[in-house]
Simulated assay, not measured.
Amino acid sequence: MGSKNKLKRFRENETFTNVIQPSREELLQEDFKWKGKWKEFFNNDAPIVLELGCGKGEYSVGLAQRYPEKNFIGIDIKGARFWRGAKTAIEEDLNNVCFIRMQIELLAYAFAENEVSEIWITFPDPQIKYKRTKHRMTNADFLENYKKVLHSEGIVHLKTDSEFMHGYTLGLLHGAGHEVLYAHHDIYSNHEAPEEVVGIQTFYEKQYLEKQKRITYIKFKIN
C-alpha cells in the first residue's frame, strides 16, 4: 500500500465514529474513557466480543452481520488495515461493531475485569522461530492478559492455517490445565463444524482454501 493511500485512510479513520484511537499514554495512565463502559458506547447490554489482530476487519464485520445480538470490537495496531472493515460497517449501517487502534499487550488498560465475553484470534502470525515465542498470541503471558478482561465463563477462539500454531496452542493449553472445548486440525472437513467458524471467511482464508491448505480451529476457556 502506498504512503498516500495510508495517509488517506488514517485521515478517514479520524472521521469514523466506529474507530477509536487512544494514545499509549492515555491507556497507561488509566485515562481511557471507555474502559468498563463499553455497554455505554454501544448503548446496550449485549455481550462484548473482541477480535485481536483483526487485520482488515473482515471477520469482525462478518460476525457483526451474523450476530446482531452481540457487540464486536476489532483490535489492531495498523489502522490503515482495518479502515476497510470500519468503512464497510458504516456503509452497511452496522452499529454493533467498532475498531480500536492499539497494541494487544495493553488489552487490560482498555477493558475492565469480566467485561469481555469472547475473544477471537484469527490467522495470527505463528512466530515459528523460538526467539519469537514471546510474540505468539497464545503464549502464557497473552493468555494471562486475556483472562484479566474475560468473563469467568469467557471463551477464546483460535482459527489458523498454521499447523505449528495449532499444535503449540493445544500443547500449552493441555499443559497448563486450561479447558479445551473443541479442537479440529481441518475444520472444513468436519460437517459438524460451528457455523461461526466455517460461515465466515477472510480474503486470505479463501486463498488458503483454494490452495487446499488446512484451516485449524480451537475453542477454549482459560482457567
Rank of each mutant, 00 (worst) to 15 (best):
S23M: 12
R24D: 10
E26W: 02
L27A: 11
Q29N: 15
Q29H: 14
D31V: 03
F32K: 07
K33M: 15
K35N: 01
G36Y: 08
K37H: 13
W38Y: 07
K39A: 11
F41V: 09
N43C: 12
N44M: 10
A46L: 14
A46R: 15
I48M: 08
E51I: 00
G53T: 07
C54E: 00
G55M: 12
G57Y: 00
Y59W: 10
Y59R: 09
L63E: 07
Q65K: 15
K70L: 03
K70P: 00
N71Y: 05
N71S: 09
F72E: 00
F72P: 04
G74L: 04
I75P: 11
D76T: 10
D76V: 07
G79H: 05
F82V: 07
K87V: 03
K87G: 07
I90S: 09
I90G: 05
E92P: 03
E92M: 08
E92V: 00
L94R: 02
N95M: 12
N95Y: 07
N96H: 09
N96D: 11
C98W: 10
F99M: 12
Q103L: 14
Q103N: 14
Q103F: 10
L106Y: 06
A108P: 13
Y109G: 10
F111L: 04
V116W: 02
S117Y: 02
S117R: 11
S117Q: 13
E118Y: 01
I119T: 05
W120V: 00
I121F: 04
T122K: 12
P124W: 05
D125R: 00
I128L: 06
Y130R: 14
T133F: 14
T133S: 15
